Simulated assay, not measured.
Amino acid sequence: MDIAEHRQAWEILSHVPEGQKNQYLVQAILKVQERDYLEKVIRETVRDELKSGRMTHPEVPTTDTIPDQMLDFLSKLDDNV
């Protein structure tokens, strides 16, 4: 295991209880596929909106706080990963 990523993956997998490793790997693979698909769809949607000119530049908040809507959205993404 000369590759750092392999060592890191092995460390994570070694903490998964016996009998659950296959299911863990299946879920991990499917989540990566889902995330890649969602990223592709979001990129295409944003690109299409920018090309159409329908998307306008939102007002930039004048404070360093993150709007509650954005925090809720990010929280939901984190729950799905």
Rank of each mutant, 00 (worst) to 15 (best):
E39H: 07
K40E: 01
K40S: 03
V41C: 02
I42Q: 14
I42L: 08
R43W: 04
E44H: 02
E44I: 01
E44C: 01
T45Y: 10
T45E: 13
T45S: 15
V46W: 00
R47S: 03
R47G: 02
R47A: 01
R47V: 01
D48L: 14
E49W: 12
E49C: 13
K51Y: 10
K51M: 05
S52G: 05
S52K: 12
G53R: 04
R54C: 02
M55Y: 02
M55D: 00
M55I: 05
H57D: 14
H57R: 15
H57C: 14
P58A: 04
P58V: 01
P58G: 02
E59M: 15
E59G: 12
E59W: 07
V60N: 00
V60A: 04
V60W: 00
P61T: 07
P61Y: 14
T62G: 09
T63M: 12
T63V: 06
T63R: 08
T63P: 08
D64I: 05
D64M: 08
T65K: 12
T65S: 15
T65Y: 10
I66P: 04
I66E: 14
I66C: 14
P67Y: 09
P67E: 14
D68M: 05
Q69L: 12
Q69F: 08
M70Y: 14
L71F: 10
L71T: 10
L71Y: 11
L71E: 10
D72L: 13
D72R: 10
F73D: 13
F73E: 12
L74V: 01
L74Y: 07
L74N: 05
L74C: 08
S75C: 04
S75Q: 06
K76W: 11
L77Q: 15
L77S: 12
D78T: 11
D78K: 15
D78F: 15
D78R: 15
D79I: 09
D79G: 06
